[in-house]
Design a protein around this nucleic acid. Structure first.
Lengths: 105, 105
DNA sequence: GCTACCTGTAAAGTGTATGTTTACACTTTA
DNA sequence: TAAAGTGTAAACATACACTTTACAGGTAGC
C-alpha cells in the first residue's frame, strides 16, 4: 500500500447525484425536502461547493440505507486530496519529521 | 452489521496521547514543536476540546508513519457519536425516511 | 525557599465552513 | 405564456480550528 490517497477522488455530491438520486429519479428540490435541508444547500452539496457534515452523513445513511461512514469517508478522501493539492500545505507536511523508526541507529 | 457506530469511542487525542506520545516519551510541548502547532492547540487536541483537521491528519501520518485516514476515521467516529448524542439531532435524523427499498409493494 | 520546566486553559482575534432566508436569472416543458 | 426545476449570489448566524498572549498550578532540583 504505497498510496492511500486517491488520485482526484470525486466529491461526495457527485456520488450522491450519480449513484443515488439519478437512479431513483429524485431531483434536487425533492432531495432537499426529503433530507430536510434547503434547496440552495442541497445544490451546493451536489455541485461540490459544500461538504458532507456529520449530521448530513447521518441523514444520508438513513435515507439510502447506507453507513454514515460511507459518506464521511468520501468527504475525507476528497478533503485529503484537496489538502495535499495546496502548495502551502505540501510545504508544511514536507517539513514534518518522522518520530518513529528511530531504532537501529 | 447492525451498528456501525461505536459506543462511546475515544476522541483522537486520547489515542494520540496513549498510543503514540506516551510510548515514545514525547510530552505536549515537544509534540507541538514536532507537529508545528502551538502548545495550546496541541493541548486542546489531546484533551478532546478540538478535533483533527485534514491537515493535522496529514501531519500525524507523516510523524507516526500511519495513514491519514486512521486519524480522520477516529475523528469521524467520534463526531458521529457526539452527533447522535444530541437530542435535537436524534429528532431530526429520526424524521428522515428511507428512499430505497420501495420494491415489492 | 527559589527556580526552571511542563501543563492546562482562558480571552481575543482570524480564517474558514456549514447552513439559512431571500432573491434573481436561466432553461425546459406543457 | 406559465410553471417547474435549477444554479447561484448576498447577507446573516453559528461553529470550529488555530494563533498569540497571558495566567495559574504542579513537579523536580538547587
Amino acid at each position: 500500500m504505497k498510496d492511500l490517497i486517491q488520485h482526484n477522488p470525486p466529491h461526495p455530491g457527485e456520488v450522491l447525484l450519480n449513484l443515488y438520486l439519478e437512479p431513483l429519479s429524485i431531483n434536487v428540490t425533492e432531495a432537499a425536502e426529503k433530507l430536510m435541508v434547503t434547496r440552495p444547500n442541497m445544490s451546493a452539496i451536489l455541485n461540490g461547493r459544500t461538504g458532507i457534515s456529520p449530521l448530513m452523513a447521518m441523514k444520508l445513511s438513513k435515507a439510502f440505507n447506507t453507513s454514515p461512514q460511507l459518506w464521511l469517508n468520501l468527504q475525507h478522501n476528497y478533503d485529503l486530496w484537496t489538502t495535499l493539492n495546496s502548495k502551502e500545505n505540501k510545504r508544511i507536511i514536507g517539513s514534518i519529521k518522522t518520530l518513529v523508526l528511530n531504532r537501529k541507529r
